[in-house]
Structure formats: structure tokens, C-alpha cells
């Protein structure tokens, strides 16, 4: 039979022992490992940002059209009477 106060007393008395020097060494090791992991994640983030930026740059129409040639196809009135529009408006 164990009462509430006795239970608390057992918890209070059962602190156990700790090797604080060993724990300190282990904490130091974990701190360094986590700092390295954070640095790796940051580097990976920078690299990903660079790759996304590069991909976005090369996918930009102004770059793809080599000086606006693509826009010329879109906006140039001369090509509005090409074979496609002939087909669309044919009976």
C-alpha cells in the first residue's frame, strides 16, 4: 500500500546520480554536431535558392526570345494572317 505523500517522497528521494563531467562533454559534442547540421542546411538552402533563381532567369521569356523575337511572333501584325488564322476563319 502506498499513499500519495509516500509516493511523492519516493520520487523526491530517487534523484539518482549524474556524471556531470561526462554529460558536459556529451552536450559539447551535440552542440557542435547541431551547429554543423544547421550550417549544412543553410548551405543547402543558399544552393537551392541559387538554382531556383538561375532556372527562373533562364526560363524568363525575355531571355528565351533572344532579344524579343518571341514577342515579335505574338505582337507582330504580319503574322496575324498566317495559315492558322486562315484555317480558323475558313468556312
Amino acid at each position: 500500500m502506498i499513499g500519495y505523500d509516500e509516493y511523492l517522497g519516493r520520487i523526491r528521494d530517487g534523484k539518482g546520480t549524474a556524471d556531470f563531467a561526462a554529460l558536459r562533454r556529451s552536450i559539447g559534442g551535440k552542440i557542435i554536431a547541431r551547429q554543423k547540421a544547421r550550417a549544412r542546411r543553410a548551405a543547402a538552402g543558399v544552393l537551392a535558392l541559387f538554382l531556383i533563381s538561375a532556372a527562373a532567369y533562364f526560363a524568363c521569356p525575355a531571355v528565351m526570345t533572344e532579344g524579343g523575337q518571341l514577342y515579335a511572333y505574338v505582337f507582330e501584325p504580319d503574322i496575324s494572317d498566317g495559315p492558322v488564322l486562315d484555317y480558323v476563319f475558313s468556312d
Binding site: I11, R12, G14, K15, G16, A18, L23, S26, I27, K30, I31, R34
Partner: peptide, 19 residues
Amino acid sequence: SRYVFTAEDREDLFQEVFI
């Protein structure tokens, strides 16, 4: 050591606190 009771849990938690 009054919150968790196995040696492993205590050491893990203690280290996590100081990290």
C-alpha cells in the same frame, strides 16, 4: 530526475535542456 525516471531519459532531457 523528478520528472522522468530512467537514467537514459534523465540524461537525454538534461542534455537537451543545456543545448
